[in-house]
Design a protein around this nucleic acid. Structure first.
Length: 128
RNA sequence: UAAGUAUUUCGGAUGGUCGCGCAUAUUUAUAUGUGAGGAAAGUCCGGGCUCCAUAGAGCAUGUAAUGCUAGAUAACGUCUAGUGGGAGUGAUCCUAAGGAUAGUGCAACAGAAAAUUACCGCCUUAAUUUAUUAAGGUAAGGGUGAAAAAGUGAGGUAAGAGCUCACUAAGUUUUAUGGUGACAUAGAAUUUGUGUAAACCCCAUUUGGAGCAACACCAAGAAAUAAAGGUUAAGACAAUGCUCGUCGUCUUUUAAGGUUGGUGGCUUGAGGUAUAUAGUAAUAUAUAUCCUAGAUAAAUGACUGUCAAAUACAGAACCCGGCUUAUGAAAUGCUUAAAAC
RNA sequence: GGCCCGUUGGUCAAGCGGUUAAGAUAUCGCCCUUUCACGGCGGGGUCACGAGUUCGAUUCUCGUACGGGUCA
């Protein structure tokens, strides 16, 4: 069923920061195979690969709001990940997903930051 | 002061630390510059641009579109100024506003009748049962309905009727005056033909189709097609046999189409700003000056200082002109009402 | 980004401008039955929303919202 392997991402180049997921099939593969941790507004999926870099994917559904709000929610997650990146392990595939009922009136930058840090702690991906 | 109405403007500014897209430099890691709207939205119209079709002209077809006048515009179903009609005390606003006398259809229920009408009525004649019937005339009055054959008065009559007359209302034709024109005002003749075209339809005008996932180029890979050439390698036709020949196999080149990936298309344009002139205005012309996003799972974020205080609707995806819808704040003019002078 | 289609009780769904908007199923109430089921009677609709045309709009026209399909 999931005939779209992870090889579709080009690993040969040197990537400055973490690269992003681009295909719909990879999202499906990671969500079905990975471990997850649920918070109040967010779900984080985790799998491992044997490469030197990390991969990040962000999902915001069309039911979470209009395009301005969706863009802002994506930018918050990128900002939080950028700050926490230096403390993480290497060789991870991460997918961050907003829940269906989440609206921008309920949440804030700081609440999302708490959620993500909690879920990272649960999944044990911080370097020691 | 309150309520309303019309028009216009703005859509936070300036710094610091970390970080993102693009361009340019040196250089391969830094520096500098720049970086989302008035609606970017809806996709309701019109154009540019690209490809396809097309000698030229006409007719027909179409789930076609538009429909008062003059002007503006590259063009428009848009805009400006007016005309007619309608709403409002008023400022002001709305108006798909040709044709019902080309033809067809529809008008539920109610009502006699929804278009050459007659239930109750009014009148005349005849008959006899003397208060009813039959034949005829008539459309004044009644009731129904959204809508009932133009309204009032007088004459006239057996009873009545635009049957006749006066005034009024509406339509058609026509004359004069004013206006570029739609049309307005005044007069004459004639008529009183229900409504509906946002029902079919008729008339006039316009219209070839598709859309940047268009289209062009580059590279890769392997399958199929066509043309030309080489050659006889599986083979077939033909022949006693051989050669030539034809088809086919193999192979080379070219062409066209398409798949995957990439590049271009991609932002200097019916551009913006200021001033002057013409015009009631929309807008046009001239001069000077400026270059202001271009991504491809898709760039604007986090923390914070100052400005008394503070940000609603909302995110470019080839470009431009309009319309519609969502929405915060401020200013000005005008109208109505109340109060005071 | 472009191009099309639709919206009628909880669900499915008919409706050539005109009577209180057909029908099925579900649900609620009453009746039938010793009781349940079957059966009988009845109730409940902003015709997505807002303007317009018309005497009159679920139906015709325009706009808005929501949902669905499609492109090589």
């Amino acid at each position: 069923m999931f005939s779209y392997p992870l090889i579709c991402i080009n690993w040969g180049e040197q990537v400055k920061y973490t690269s992003s997921i681009k295909k719909k099939g990879t999202f499906k593969y990671l969500i079905s195979k990975g471990k997850y941790s649920r918070e109040k507004y967010i779900v984080v999926y985790l799998t491992k690969n044997n490469k030197p870099n990390n991969v990040l994917g962000i999902c915001v559904s069309k039911k979470n709001g209009i395009s301005v709000h969706r863009n802002k929610m994506k930018r918050w997650i990128r900002e939080i990940y950028k700050i926490e990146e230096s403390n993480l392990q290497k060789g991870l595939n991460l997918v961050v997903m907003y829940k269906k009922d989440t609206k921008i009136e309920d949440i804030d930058y700081n609440t999302i930051k708490e959620d993500i840090i909690n879920s990272f702690k649960k999944l044990d991906i911080y370097e020691i």
